[in-house]
Design a protein around this nucleic acid. Sequence first.
DNA 1: CAACATTCTTAGCCAAGGCTAAACTGTTTG
DNA 2: CAAACAGTTTAGCCTTGGCTAAGAATGTTG
Lengths: 159, 159
Amino acid sequence: MTDSNSNASLIAPSIPGDALPPVEQHAQQYATVRNAHETELIEDYVELIGDLLAHRGEARAADIANRMAVSQATVSKMIRRLNELELVTSKPYRSLFLTEAGQKMAETSRARHDVVLHFLRALGVKDSTARIDAEGMEHHVSDETLAIMQRFTKQQQKK
Amino acid sequence: MTDSNSNASLIAPSIPGDALPPVEQHAQQYATVRNAHETELIEDYVELIGDLLAHRGEARAADIANRMAVSQATVSKMIRRLNELELVTSKPYRSLFLTEAGQKMAETSRARHDVVLHFLRALGVKDSTARIDAEGMEHHVSDETLAIMQRFTKQQQKK
DNA sequence: CAACATTCTTAGCCAAGGCTAAACTGTTTG
DNA sequence: CAAACAGTTTAGCCTTGGCTAAGAATGTTG
């Protein structure tokens, strides 16, 4: 018998209020994180491409490579994937553009990112740290938490 | 010329206060996230093993597989890695134990995890959501932010 | 306009983290 | 105590996301 052992407490009396979550819930937590990881990079690329288009008027593979601190070959390969996923359109050796779906994803990601970033700053985290943390956190914040963060930031600004 | 283009504003006038971060800083953000991803899974395993040992008295591969919603083969392979990293000790077909280093990592991860979880709850996020978000966020929260979260949680509890 | 520089792509490598199927070990039980 | 079952490992596969090196396309400039 293993985890579903209900008399495990005989072996190691569980600390009250600090128990392991039920298996199904626990499993769901990890599955959600794993799932987020699959889309994370895609979203980062699309978001960055959107930003480059907005701020620079064009998105070149070399820019992406520089900003992501990754080789151009890696970017090139990734762009092929984004193409297959119909998130970007690209002609060889030319600048990139986002499809409808790509634009939607870029906007969503950007908005999400901004909420988290502003929240962290409102909380008192210094800018450079907030940027790094936001980049990592944005893909793991549920809509519920996101809404709460947004509310918090607004309240903080009123003060 | 690409990203370092300083007259890019001629192409697309940048929105003030909403510019792209300087390339080096931007690159650092992504690099930090990539780095976190490498250790993330390892930490999750070690943390879970620590929890199982604390609450159940033993950590079996099957339990881990169930709780992570992953096949036993995957766990087995991962344990080999943890062994190589000298984070766990294991005899074939036997329960697992943490090395000194493993215990230290488990404690750190657990503490981190708890700070984030309690913070989210203090913020008003409902428990089931907080658990999922915490699982994803914990590896992307800097020490600075962590300290602020901890302070916030304490203040909230005083009220 | 030819040569050089930059950018982009392709080919081929690697490690990580999943999976299934099959073999092996340990435990329980008829 | 042998058979059946539960748990573990191994083998072999796949995808993702990195890399370097080499070559092709494009852009720039003397």
